[in-house]
Simulated assay, not measured.
Amino acid sequence: MNAQWANISNFLLYLGVSIPLLWIGMYAFSLTTPYNDFAILRKGGDVSDSGHVDAAMATAYDLGGKMLGLAIVLSSAIFHSVNLFDLTLWGMVSIVFEVIVFCLFRLLMPIKVTEEIPKGNVSVGILSASISVASGLMMAALISY
């Protein structure tokens, strides 16, 4: 029974570090966009204006992809870390590189990503989400190497 409590306490410790890392990553992403993601999402409930709905959908895809990409790479950091410091270090490294990948995506695209998403270009939101998930998968593999 004591072994179970040790496992539960270890689970809670890693969860207590991982969830804040995920939110720090999402905050870092919010600093890279000139618009307020959550304000756009709140306006998406106004179904009388299809522009608000489309912008909210594009933003939701974009944010959801960023969160999934971060969660994937953080899950690898959790799995491969030897202690909480190791998890924190790799978590912060992964956040930095996920943000760098997003910034490179914005720079290399022939369209203005941060202008298209708030306009309601859902396809750009989905593409941005896909880039975030793909880079998260690659970085997760790199952590295990």
Rank of each mutant, 00 (worst) to 15 (best):
G64Q: 04
P118D: 06
L74G: 08
F97Q: 04
D37L: 03
L13S: 13
D46Q: 13
L21V: 06
G125D: 05
S18D: 08
G65L: 06
F38K: 04
E98I: 11
A134H: 04
S30Q: 06
I24M: 10
N121A: 03
P34C: 04
S130G: 12
S132D: 09
G65P: 00
V17Q: 06
T33F: 02
L41I: 12
G44T: 03
V73T: 13
G44P: 02
T33M: 06
I126G: 04
S75L: 15
F97Y: 08
N2A: 15
K119D: 02
E116C: 03
N2S: 15
K66H: 10
A28H: 00
A140H: 08
L74A: 09
L12G: 08
L68G: 06
M1C: 14
N83P: 03
I126F: 12
I78Y: 13
M109F: 08
V133L: 13
L137F: 13
F11Q: 15
G65V: 04
A140C: 04
G125H: 04
F85L: 12
E98H: 09
G69M: 07
M109W: 02
V99L: 01
S144D: 12
N121S: 05
R42K: 13
G65A: 09
V93S: 05
L12S: 13
S18T: 15
P110I: 10
S128R: 06
F85E: 10
F29H: 02
H80T: 11
H80F: 13
W5Q: 15
L12R: 12
V96F: 09
D49G: 07
A55K: 00
L127Q: 12
I95E: 01
L127V: 13
F38I: 03
G91Y: 03
W23G: 08
S128L: 04
G136C: 08
F79G: 06
I72M: 14
N83G: 12
L108K: 12
T32K: 10
V93D: 01
F11M: 14
P20A: 09
A39F: 05
N7Q: 15
L107D: 05
D54W: 11
A3L: 15
M67H: 06
I143W: 07
N2Y: 14
F105N: 01
A129P: 00
F11S: 13
M1S: 15
A77E: 06
F29V: 02
G64D: 07
D46R: 13
V124Q: 00
L127A: 14
A141F: 14
I131R: 00
L84Y: 01
S81G: 10
L87D: 04
R106Q: 01
V113N: 00
V73E: 07
